[in-house]
Design a protein around this nucleic acid. Structure first.
Length: 582
DNA sequence: GCCGTTTTCGGCCCGACTGTTTTCAGTCG
């Protein structure tokens, strides 16, 4: 059968968790499934771990859940879920997805009215069958009605590349119209999640009411979901939710830590705190032995009070970072300022929007000491470069680069053909400074064929970087299937870097895979894949994903100086790709 | 169901907002 992706297994665990709660199982029992699902979302490919018998090394996965996961991998489901489904329809999960309907309400609707799905709920609302039920007043029913509409109209999770600009927009609005300080996007946006469920904004102020009032009156707010003394929530058109929290300035560190999450990270942090007789919340850290409260201006102080070094936001997933921090085993992760160049961008010679000179000027303006223009190869329909084009472009690169004071490397994003061969002959590639090779076609070949295809590309002595290695789209496509470990091993063995592509719809390699690849000793690049000068800034997204993968600067090729980059290329050519590898 | 620099048994995070209530349950993050 088809190999299940981690996300699919996590979804099944979440279904089990929901039906367990519905069935009245003990709180900590079903919460264990929730934690396990969260772990899988950010873990290396589960199929490999199952095969190696290493599932229980993952945090929050013990004997029972490991057995269930193995069963799901082997059969696509598990007996325990089937037993639950025999009593409670899986469509109950829909009910709980409706904003305003929680477990108690769903149980009541199912038990008293037989409402078991979204369609059932709509019919019951239309027929007025909710009227007069215990604890369901007119306002609550109206709220549920609105929740149903939102559920049906809601888009999927919002890509980070769309959410971050909106977050900056509301921050700019509040900065202009209120006296709020410390305005900061928090939550999943700050953690650089590839897609986000909502946007969290926080700030400090001595007049929270004024800030909240301005927030709920924002012209883009379609509806106000909640408006209290320190927090408020609005919906934008399309259903994206923004939460705002306002506290006094001396609590900024506590507030930022609290609202950055993740939920799982915070739970684990507070569990650790409880063992030290401390109670952590956004309102400060209370010492339960003497009742004193510590408030923090910075997050560093929060972690220090708990006996931990600072943990970067992108690492806060509740997947072992707290233990690593405690043991002093957290890496100093790469920062945007560590980058000295960008290997992946396009200009009007292929499918970019800006001219070669504009792109070079923009790269220089970012302070890079080098970059490469990697237009597509000719196999990509009409827009790719022919070998003659490539030669002509190369002659202009040095000249324009000199003009702007940056080293413009000769490059190409060459197509990897279905059999693993390349769209340009080696003689042409040999004339380039650095080569990016990417899969753009025949995405549906078999897993084994795709594995062989990528390994063969790695083994070409002129291929230095595999571009967007899984081909995923964060919204629409999980990526083509291949044997990750086999390709990571090949990349490490041949001295081929794997790209972390910063295009917001790609963010590829995904961070769990990058973290896995690092175990094989793979080198990475953080690239923008810019198709216009304004998109060079997308490299920040690539760095965000690298940080989520716990990568230090030394794992990233474009943190190195030009000589070291050229030495990386030369070393592979000298070895002749796979031919002379020990 | 998981887990252990107080535990292999007995613990397991914390608070804001809403609506239906007369002191709190439910929902959410």
């Amino acid at each position: 059968m088809k190999r299940l992706a981690n996300a699919e297994i996590a979804k099944i665990l979440t279904q089990i968790r929901t039906l367990m709660e519905f069935a009245g199982e003990p709180f900590f029992k079903f919460m264990a499934y929730e934690r396990a699902a969260e772990t899988l979302e950010n873990a290396p490919p589960v199929a490999e771990l199952v095969a190696a018998g290493r599932l229980q090394e993952l945090p929050g996965i013990g004997k029972t859940i490991a057995a269930r996961i193995s069963e799901i991998c082997a059969t696509g489901t598990c007996v325990y879920l089937d037993e639950l489904r025999a009593k409670y329809p899986l469509t109950l999960v829909e009910l709980l997805g409706v904003s305003g309907v929680g477990m108690k309400t769903a149980q009541q609707l199912f038990g008293l009215l037989g409402v078991a799905s979204l369609a059932d709920l709509e019919a019951a609302l239309a027929a007025g069958r909710l009227d007069g039920m215990p604890r369901l007043g007119a306002k609550t029913i109206e709220n549920i009605r609105r929740g149903v509409l939102a559920y049906k109209g809601r888009q999927r999770r919002t890509p980070l590349g769309q959410a971050l600009p909106i977050a900056r927009e509301i921050v700019a609005y509040l900065a202009e119209h209120t006296a709020a300080a410390d305005l900061t996007p928090a939550g999943s946006v700050r953690r650089q999640e590839p897609t986000v469920g909502d946007i969290d904004i926080l700030c400090t102020s001595t007049d929270a009411a004024a800030v909240i009032s301005a927030f709920t009156r924002w012209e883009r707010a379609e509806a106000v979901l909640a408006e209290g003394e320190t927090k408020a929530s609005i919906w934008l058109r399309g259903g994206l939710q923004i939460d705002l929290r306002v506290l006094p300035a001396h609590l900024y560190g506590n507030l930022l830590q609290h609202f950055t999450g993740s939920r799982e990270h915070n739970i684990q942090l507070r569990e650790l705190a409880v063992r030290k007789n401390l109670r952590v919340s956004e309102n400060g850290i209370v010492d339960l032995t003497d009742g004193t409260t510590t408030t923090c201006r910075t997050e560093e102080e929060v972690y220090a009070r708990l006996g931990l070094p600072y943990i970067a936001p992108e690492l806060r997933l509740g997947i072992g970072e707290i233990e690593a921090a405690r043991d002093g085993a957290l890496p100093a992760v790469v920062e945007l300022g560590d980058l000295r160049g960008d290997f992946h961008m396009h200009c009007t010679w292929s499918d970019g929007r800006n001219t070669l000179e504009t792109m070079i000027a923009a790269a220089a303006a970012r302070g890079y000491s080098y970059h490469s223009v990697s237009d597509h190869s000719w196999g990509r329909g009409g827009m790719g470069l022919t070998p003659d084009d490539l030669r002509a472009q190369r002659e202009r690169l040095r000249e324009i680069g000199d003009k702007y004071g940056v080293r413009s490397l000769r490059s190409s994003e060459v197509d990897i053909l279905p059999d693993g061969g390349l769209d340009f002959d080696d003689a042409i590639l040999a004339d380039l400074d650095i080569v990016v090779a990417s899969v753009h076609s025949a995405l549906n070949i078999s897993r084994d064929d795709m594995t062989r295809r990528l390994i063969r590309a790695c083994e070409n002595p002129y291929v230095n970087i595999i571009g967007h290695p899984t081909g995923r789209n964060v919204e629409t496509f999980p990526g083509y299937e291949f044997d990750y470990d086999a390709v990571f091993a090949a990349a490490a063995r041949t001295g081929t870097a794997l790209e972390i592509d910063g295009q917001p719809n790609r963010l590829d390699l995904p961070s769990p895979l990058a973290r896995r690849a690092r175990e094989f000793g793979v080198t990475f690049t953080c690239d923008s894949d810019a198709h216009g000068a304004d998109q060079l800034a997308n490299v920040a997204y690539a760095v965000g994903q690298a940080r989520r993968a716990w990568l230090a600067p030394d794992a990233i090729l474009n943190t190195r100086d030009l000589d070291d980059v050229l030495a990386f290329v030369e070393a592979k050519r000298v070895r002749g790709g796979a031919a002379k590898v020990i």
